[in-house]
Amino acid sequence: MKILIKYLRPLGTYFFILGLAIIFFHIDHGVELKNATKKLLTVYAYSSFTQSWGAGPELVLIFEEACNCKVDLIDAGDSGVLLQKLRYEVGNVDVVLGMDQMTKDEALSGFAWHEFSEKFFSDIQWSPMLPVSLEKKTLIPFDWAPLTFVIRKGDVKPPISLDDLLDQRFEKKISLQDPRTSNLGFQFYYWLISEKGEAGAINYLEKLKGNIFSMAPSWSAAYGLFQTKQVPLTFSYLTSLMYHWQQEKDLDQIEAANFVQGHPYQVEYVGIPATSADRDLAEKFIRFLLSEKAQEIIVTRNFMLPVVKLTSSSENLRRLPKLKIKELNYSSLTAEKKKTWLELWKGLW
């Protein structure tokens, strides 16, 4: 009997934990059941937006109070994976958030989207800094940020241009993102192609090889190299500075490169699939996203710039350096072109 108890006790403990885990899982995932009478809005977004420290949960809380509805915020991965998932979830998603210029054409050609009326935009005061216009009324920008090199002060003299990055002082000091696996990586590559042409971009990368410490598979891996002081500069968002100022209270250690020829940018879009079950509610959510209150939350939690004019901006927003924005022609960025350029890139190494 004693042996039986001795044997069963650890087994019982772990099955108890397993049972508890299943209960926790259902508590966490089964909230919809409790609120079955409320309208449900399903929002697909990327990982950092949906987390407890991100902008998503706070925005959802405010919106739910206002609309007396339930918002299911789902982490659908980065924009590349998000669109692949959307292919199979059509009909179950009301709002899709997180496409950028790199994936916008694919989104527009691969899926049908709800078209917003002129009335929807009538009272929106777009930020004069926003570098895109609303030529199509289907995918709406909800935040954006210039792209640049983020540098640890004192480690190396900041570069002043793309060509300055070829200088010997940057030998093995730059972390970039792989364009095959990262949108930001492709943004950098496309910037080079826009500046220098296809052949020029390849020639440039050939010269830059010796200065690249690593081409990481993702922004987080590349930025991790920067944060762990493996490299003094990395390609990232200008607004990364705001994270360090706000969260790490680090006002003096990090700076951004300011290139004479200007910088590319990333704009993030939100849209309503045409198959959404409740387009009215989805429109209200997007309208809320474009409100000043929501945009302020996006600035402080998502660390991106607002797309609308803010009556008062935070100190960190004002402190950000003003970078010259370079207009890039994203309409020429087709899936075929992308594939061709990636083959060229692969051939380089």
């Binding site: 990982s47 950092s48 987390q51 420290w53 991100g54 982490d75 993702s218 922004w219 987080s220 930025y223 991790g224 944060q227 762990t228 990364s240 994270y243 969260q247 660390f303």
Partner: peptide
């Protein structure tokens, strides 16, 4: 959760 933290500066 760790992957999400790393994707948003929090290594």
């Amino acid at each position: 959760h760790i992957d999400s933290l790393m994707s948003s500066y929090r290594i």
